[in-house]
């Protein structure tokens, strides 16, 4: 086999945090003709929600002496996102390039990520966020679990390693339970799980000068590009459009309060504000 993908030590636990690079909306470019946005242009930043899987992985590092590997699929600015994760305390970065994946192909990216995980010297858990700015990103965790045939821990919190398995809190529907499971797991991490740590100034410096990010392509990974292309073609996407600002019309009620309350109350109920019962 080709040289080892990562420097990680196979004798120590290894956990992976997956991040997704999303455009920084401050720099969005919009085609004035079509109103569509150019997603390849803007700077990408580590989305706050993507700090969650990194934080979850770092907590495993703190508790179980694991090494943390950060992975991202090649998109502009992905290196910056990985550096930010490294500055929080992750040990190493992997930047996967496929050429075939485009922003809509969450399943294809999940495939690439899953295959990479398979190539690692070892892996005890994979953490991935449930939401970034990108709508389909929330499929990546479930998909990786299915591809690897690993345990899926939805909405995982306080996940720790033990005896080659994991334990912690998982979401069963809307309920939270304590679980344990043998074997490695893919953990999806909600945006409200932790207060992620801030990268310190020391961390920022080390991320750029002492940590390595390896760039790998399909050949390095021994992956068939056609397979990814097929996955990628399962969904198609058209038109990233900017949601136009709604022109606000104020509707004024000067009726007696009981009358207006009845109309407004019905409307609030219809719009679903009374919640899930």
């Amino acid at each position: 086999m080709s040289p080892p993908l990562v420097k990680a030590d196979a004798r120590r636990p290894l956990v992976v945090a997956i991040i997704n690079q999303v455009p920084d909306l401050t720099y969005l470019r919009i085609d004035p003709g079509t109103g569509e946005i150019d997603l390849d242009e803007p700077d990408r930043v580590l989305h706050p929600n993507d700090r969650q899987p990194v934080e979850s992985a770092l907590r495993v590092k703190d508790a179980d002496d694991a090494q943390v590997l950060v992975m991202a699929v090649d998109r502009q600015g992905a290196e910056e996102g990985i550096r930010e994760a490294l500055s929080m305390g992750a040990d190493e970065g992997l930047l996967l390039s496929s050429g075939a994946t485009r922003h809509s192909d969450a399943l294809a990216r999940a495939n690439l990520l899953a295959h990479t995980v398979r190539h690692l010297p070892r892996c005890d858990a994979v953490f991935v966020g449930t939401e970034t700015m990108e709508p389909d990103w929330s499929t990546v965790g479930g998909a990786i679990a299915a591809i690897l045939d690993w345990n899926l821990v939805p909405g995982g919190r306080e996940v720790r390693l033990k005896d080659g398995g994991t334990h912690g809190v998982a979401m069963y529907g809307a309920a939270f339970v304590r679980y344990k499971a043998a074997g490695p797991a893919v953990v999806t991490v909600r945006p409200d799980t932790h207060k992620p740590r801030w990268p310190t100034t020391w961390g920022v410096r080390d991320a750029y000068r002492d940590r390595t990010i390896q760039a790998l392509n399909l050949t390095d990974l021994e992956i068939d590009g056609r397979m990814l292309a097929r996955m990628a073609s399962l969904t198609e996407t058209r038109g990233q459009r900017v949601v136009r600002e709604r022109k606000k019309e104020t509707e004024t009620f000067t009726d007696p309060p009981e009358v207006s309350a009845r109309v407004i109350g019905k409307r609030l109920a219809r719009d679903g504000y009374l919640g899930g019962f």
């Binding site: 910056e80 550096r83 930010e84 500055s87």
Partner: peptide, 8 residues
């Protein structure tokens, strides 16, 4: 590196 420092 400096940009990340400033942002964080």
């Amino acid at each position: 590196e400096q940009r990340l420092l400033k942002k964080t």
